[in-house]
């Protein structure tokens, strides 16, 4: 075989090899995210803890010491309480975390995001939240039966008025 056709053949081989590498790694190997009988529990919401100390009414004497343009009836410290959240599934603790309020003055709200694989099917879900240093234990609770289909997301959110909101259950 003369040199030129051989060279073309080798070039074709190299291009084919290059494209084979590109084609294979563009999609393979695939990754497994969930088993067939698994679902996902996601807890995602933002919440600001209660103020560490309640507002205090200033006395007349204290008010008199303040400049006229800065006289407020109440003194409200900015610092907020850390937020503790716990999720139990069928009695087992799945997630428990205490989040410190962000910000220089620890006065910000916390963002909660947690996601975990759980077995699909029927479960007993118990949620608890503490957002005040002045209270012991959870000052907000929710406990209910849930049923989750495979590959679905059981989403726990939070509403300031009604408390925990669970969506995605069958």
């Amino acid at each position: 075989m003369s040199r030129q056709p051989l060279r073309f053949l080798l070039q074709a081989f190299n291009y084919a090899l290059f494209m084979a590498i590109v084609c294979y790694f563009a999609t393979s190997p695939s990754i497994r995210i969930l088993d067939d009988d698994e679902a996902v529990l996601t807890i995602a919401f933002a919440h600001a803890g209660q103020l560490r100390e309640p507002c205090r009414r200033l006395s007349q004497e204290e008010l008199n010491q303040l400049p006229a343009n800065m006289r407020r009836l109440e003194d409200c410290p900015r610092e907020r309480s850390p937020v503790t959240i716990e999720a139990r599934l069928d009695g087992e603790i799945l997630y428990r975390e205490t989040l410190q309020p962000p910000g220089l003055f620890e006065d910000g709200g916390v963002d909660i995001y947690f996601s975990a694989r759980i077995p699909a099917g029927d479960h007993r879900l118990a949620l608890g939240l503490n957002d005040s240093v002045r209270e012991q234990g959870f000052n907000l609770r929710l406990e209910r039966d849930v049923s989750i289909a495979p590959a679905r997301v059981l989403l726990v959110g939070f509403d300031q008025k009604t408390g925990f909101v669970v969506t995605g259950a069958e």
Binding site: T27, S30, I31, R32, I33, D36, A151, R152, V153
Partner: peptide, 21 residues
């Protein structure tokens, strides 16, 4: 509202993401 069970990922660009698991 759901999570894919398996994915074909582009390893040239997305190789970091499976590490998140």
């Amino acid at each position: 509202e759901s999570v894919p069970r398996a994915l074909q990922i582009d390893w040239f660009y997305l190789n970091v993401y499976p590490l998140l698991e």
